[in-house]
């Protein structure tokens, strides 16, 4: 290494010591961040809904704009009015993911909860169960399978191939891609910030002036990661809405 720059192994950046308890209930930094995200979401909406004043102020104003965003920006665009039943679920998912992501840039925490696979995986599992339940309740088990695998308008010759691809894509790839998208984006962002922070630190020790460019880039990337956090929370919510909407629609 020419700059005496030793990049730490990946495990040092994402794996944290167990703080208390042990075995499957062990609590480490990521679990604490996840709890903070869950409690933060709860407290945010609890404070907003405590006094339902007609003219919203403060926290209620913020919560209402989040609700409005999910209502108009996500549900009405993907599911129509019959999807409004899912508004509380989608709002909670959005806020939880956003809070879990934004801890990536909070000083002293600096670790996105979603950079460990477990949390995106379980969120995707919840989404998977939700949209399949909706589809099965709407069409019945066979009707649902039929609507996935044999939509009208597919030429007879490619029907078997299409059925296989559609089945694998809808049942396995969707939740997997949903989880991996969130996970990999947050992991990549975390690694990017860590790389630039290490580079800035090493250059600052070597030549103080040399740290200016990576330092400036680090600040810019921090801003970029705010965008990525919001965007990934939005995309996860949006795709959840799209999947539920596809499962409950009658005709393809």
């Amino acid at each position: 290494m020419t700059l005496a720059l030793e990049f730490p192994p990946l495990s040092r950046l994402v794996e944290w010591k167990t703080l208390f308890f042990s075995g499957p209930l062990a609590v480490n930094k990521v679990v604490l961040i996840m709890w903070m995200a869950a409690v933060g979401t709860f407290v945010f909406f609890w404070m907003a809904g405590r006094r339902g004043s007609l003219v919203p102020t403060g926290v209620q104003n913020a919560a209402e704009s989040v609700m409005d965003f999910i209502h108009n920006g996500v549900i009405l665009q993907t599911m129509g009015t019959e999807g409004l039943f899912w508004a509380p679920f989608l709002t909670t998912v959005f806020c939880f993911i956003l809070l879990g992501n934004i801890f990536e840039i909070v000083p002293l925490v600096q670790m996105p909860a979603n950079a460990r696979m477990a949390i995106p995986f379980f969120l995707a599992l919840v989404v998977f169960v939700s949209y399949n339940t909706v589809g099965i309740r709407k069409h019945g088990p066979w009707g649902y399978l039929k609507s996935i695998m044999f939509p009208p308008g597919v030429p007879v010759a490619v029907r078997p191939l299409f059925a296989l691809i559609a089945f694998v894509s809808d049942i396995f790839v969707r939740p997997f891609a949903l989880a991996v998208r969130l996970f990999a984006n947050m992991l990549a962002g975390h690694l990017l910030l860590a790389t630039f922070a290490i580079l800035t630190g090493a250059l600052f020790r070597a030549t103080i002036v040399g740290a200016a460019v990576p330092g400036a880039l680090l600040v810019a990337l921090t801003g970029f990661e705010v965008l990525v956090s919001v965007l990934q929370a939005f995309i996860f919510t949006m795709l959840t809405a799209v999947f539920i909407g596809l499962a409950q629609q009658t005709e393809h």
Partner: peptide
């Protein structure tokens, strides 16, 4: 409307690159 759909399209397209990104760490 176009912007919303664009982000969805980006998310679907980007997923393949991210699979490669994850596989990079799995191979190490």
């Amino acid at each position: 409307m176009v912007r919303t759909t664009m982000f969805l399209g980006i998310a679907f397209t980007e997923a393949l690159a991210l699979f490669g990104f994850v596989l990079t760490f799995l191979l190490k």
